[in-house]
Design a protein around this nucleic acid. Structure first.
Length: 259
DNA sequence: ATGGTAGACATTCTA
């Protein structure tokens, strides 16, 4: 079983690239973020024609998440029960696997904008709510994968120029602590289960030739419960789509599970 | 210190 995550920065603009990528990389589940479209505009027919089911939670202009899957999603939950949020940032589905149910969640964690923005405490509060939600999800689903754009680079080695980024949003200690608190529920960063090239990133700013200079951050992650960590065989960042014309500023992360 | 790009939408906000 292969699972992947990709912040597409507008599914309307990127649909062709998503379908091309799925044709070349027929993963069992692809989590998408930043759909930037309402549910009535979700391209259900095109995704079905490509052989995928879709569970999605969209809104106008901003945010929006989805899980595309080979098998039909069950027990779909949009958002976090008990956490009021005007943003569509989380969707959970259950998928079949030979080893039994696998819970797959697509998350678009808040960016935070800057440390002095009101969006920054919103980000930390959202992370706290996500942690509480994952406590209950993990209790119900031993095989669980939380994938998405976490908008946090966990360590300095996930930052192209740590000195330049020090004290900025996406790398600040409180954000890293919030992500770590999630990981402390006994989740594993799938990418770090394996030896990886130096300077591996998943996002590059559109500005100042970020991709050409490899001036990026690793902020897109696949977090695995213990049962899935045990069967994880690989995790890679696929930089190819970032080379496309009109690319997303993010590129897919893919994990291979022996299921 | 500033602004650089991209997307959606409307002449600005978010990332």
């Amino acid at each position: 079983m292969k699972i992947a995550t990709w912040n597409v920065n507008s599914l309307k603009i990127r649909l062709g690239q998503v379908l091309d990528w799925l044709a070349a990389n027929p993963v069992d589940a692809l989590c998408l973020q930043e759909l930037k479209l309402t549910d009535d505009k979700f391209p259900v027919a095109e995704i079905q024609a490509a052989g995928y089911h879709a569970a999605f939670a969209g809104q106008k202009t901003y945010n929006g998440v989805a899980v595309l899957s080979r098998t039909a999603p069950r027990d779909v939950v949009r958002g976090m029960p008990g956490f009021e949020d005007t943003h569509q940032r989380l969707i959970a589905v259950t998928l079949d696997s030979p080893a039994g149910d696998v819970r797959v969640l697509s998350a678009y964690c808040p960016n935070g904008q800057s440390l002095d923005s009101e969006k920054y405490p919103y980000k930390l509060g959202w992370y706290a709510a996500l942690r509480e939600y994952m406590v209950t999800e993990l209790a119900q689903h031993p095989r669980l994968a939380l994938l998405g754009d976490f908008n946090v680079a966990p360590e300095d080695r996930d930052v192209h120029d740590p000195a330049k980024w020090e004290g900025q949003v996406l790398v600040s200690p409180p954000e890293r602590a919030a992500l770590q608190a999630l990981i402390d529920l006994d989740l594993s960063d799938a990418f770090r289960l394996f030896e990886q090239p130096e300077k591996s990133f998943s996002w590059w700013d559109y500005r100042q030739l970020g991709f050409r200079r490899n001036a990026g951050l690793r902020i897109d992650h696949i977090l695995l419960s213990p049962a899935l960590r045990e069967v994880c065989e690989a995790c890679i960042i696929d930089k190819e789509p970032r080379r496309n014309e009109q690319p997303s500023d993010h590129t897919p992360v893919v994990a291979t599970l022996a299921l």
